[in-house]
Amino acid sequence: MDVAEQTLPTEQAGRRRCASLLAGATAEELHAAWDALKDKPETKPVRGPETGLVMVRGRIGGGGSPFNLGEATVTRATVALASGTVGHAQALGTNKQKVKLAAIFDALWQEDATREHVENAVLTPVERRVEAENKAKAEETAATRVDFFTMVRGED
C-alpha cells in the first residue's frame, strides 16, 4: 500500500474498495445479489451504460516516464436512486448489464439502509473469491520456483 492510499480519508477509501470490488465482480455474482434484494429500488439511468476505451499507460523501465501501451475496452454507467443518491461503476470489458448493476450497488452502498446488503451479498463474497483465486495462483506459481542446490563432487 502506498502513502497516498494510507492517507485517504476513510469514506473515500471505502468507496474505492467498493468500486474496485464491483469492477472485479462477475455478472453472475451481481445478478445473484440483485435477485436476493428484497425491495428492488427504482433507478434512473443518468449516463450509459456505455462502452469506450481507456488508454493503458506503462512507465519506461517500469518506473520512469509514462508511455501509452495500448487501449482496453471499458464500460461505465451512472444511475440515480429515487432518493437522489448517484452510483457510478466502471469495469474493463463490454458487459453493459453487469456494469449497470454495479452502478446500482454503488448507489445502494452509499445508503445506510442498504449498505449491509451490498457488503454481505456482493463485496464480501467477491473479496473472498478474488483472495482465494489469487492465493491459488500464487501457490501454483510458487510450486514452479527453482530450488538451487550445489553438487559436491570429489573428496574434500
Binding site: M55, V56, R57, G58, E71, V74, A138
Partner: peptide, 23 residues
C-alpha cells in the same frame, strides 16, 4: 473495431512492481 469507440481517458500508469506474478 477500436476506431468505433470513444476514449474515456488514460489509465494511471501500471505498477508492474505490484504484479501478481505468474512467471
Amino acid at each position: 473495431y477500436r476506431t468505433t469507440l470513444p476514449r474515456f481517458g488514460n489509465s494511471v500508469p501500471l505498477d508492474t512492481a505490484d504484479m501478481l506474478v505468474e512467471r
